[in-house]
Design a protein around this nucleic acid. Sequence first.
DNA 1: TCTATTTGGTTCCATATCTAAATTTTTCGC
DNA 2: GCGAAAAATTTAGATATGGAACCAAATAGA
Lengths: 149, 149
Amino acid sequence: MSKPINDPLAVSLFSEISAIDHLFKIQLSKSLPIGMKLSQFAILNHIATLDGEKTPVQLARSFNLTKGAITNTLTKLSAMGYIHTRPDWDDARSKLISISTAGKNARNRAVDSIEPILGNLMKVMGAEKTKSIIPFLRDLRIILNNLEN
Amino acid sequence: MSKPINDPLAVSLFSEISAIDHLFKIQLSKSLPIGMKLSQFAILNHIATLDGEKTPVQLARSFNLTKGAITNTLTKLSAMGYIHTRPDWDDARSKLISISTAGKNARNRAVDSIEPILGNLMKVMGAEKTKSIIPFLRDLRIILNNLEN
DNA sequence: TCTATTTGGTTCCATATCTAAATTTTTCGC
DNA sequence: GCGAAAAATTTAGATATGGAACCAAATAGA
C-alpha cells in the first residue's frame, strides 16, 4: 500500500535554504562591480579561490550547468578581461581558464563590498555554530549531487 | 582602520547553500507535473501549506519578488485552473488568491513524486540532526530578510 | 589500422524568470 | 476633498539556462 509521508521536515529544510539563497543573492548582486553579473562572479570566485586552471567542462560539472551555459559566461568574462585562456597542450579539444589580475581585482572589490554584511552575519550567527552546520550542508550537497539523473 | 576579514566560513556557508538549492531545484523540476514550472510550484505550495488566502502583494513580500513577477506567475496558475481569485470586499484595489482542488491535486502529485527522494534524504541525513539545523537556517533567513534594501 | 564512439567546446534557439518603470484604480491621512 | 501611497497590471527588456545540432579531436575495439 502507498504511504505518502509528505515530510514536513524536508519541506522546511529546503524552504529555508531556498529563501536564504534567494535573499543572499539579492545582497550579493548589489555588491558586485557594475557590469558584473551573479553568474559571472560565481565562476570568477571559484577560479580565484581554487587558484589554478580549470577547463570549461570542469566548471560545468562544478556548477552543474551545461557546457553551453559555461561558454556563454566565460565569453563575457573574457570580454571584460577578467580571465585568461590558453590551449591544453595535451588535448587539442580543450582549453584552460585562469583568472587575470583585473579579474582578481574585480573579485576582491566584490568580496570587500559584501564583507561588512558577511562579518555582521557571522557575528550574529556565531562562528562556532556556523562551523558546526557546514558538515551537514556539505553532506547534503554531496548526496544531492550523486543522485541519479 | 580597515580590517578586511574575508570570512571563509561565510563563503563556505553560502557556497554550500547555493549548491544545495540548485541541485534540489533540478530534482524538483523533474518531479513537477508537465506544464508546471518551478516558480509556479513555489507559489502553489506556499498557498497550499498556509491553507488560506493571500493577496499578490503578500506573495511578493514572501518571495521577495516584484509585484509584476507575481502577477505573471498567478496569471499562469489561473490559466491552468490551479487557483481561485476573489475580490477583497474591504479593499477594491486588492484581490485574494486561494488554491483550487485541481491545484491541490497538482501540488500533491508533485510532492508525492519527490517524496521518495525526500524520504531517502531524511533517512541518510537523520531526522534529529535535520531538526537541529532548521532553527539556525530560520534565524539566518530572518536576518537576511531584515537587512536594509 | 580503420571505424565507431566518446568527449570538449561552440552556436543557436526557445523559454523561464525577473526587474523597472509607467499606468490605472482605489484607499487613506489630514 | 486632496494629495500621497498602495494594489495590481502592462510592457519592455535583461539574463540565465537547457537542449539540440554541430565540429574537431581523442579513444576504444575489432
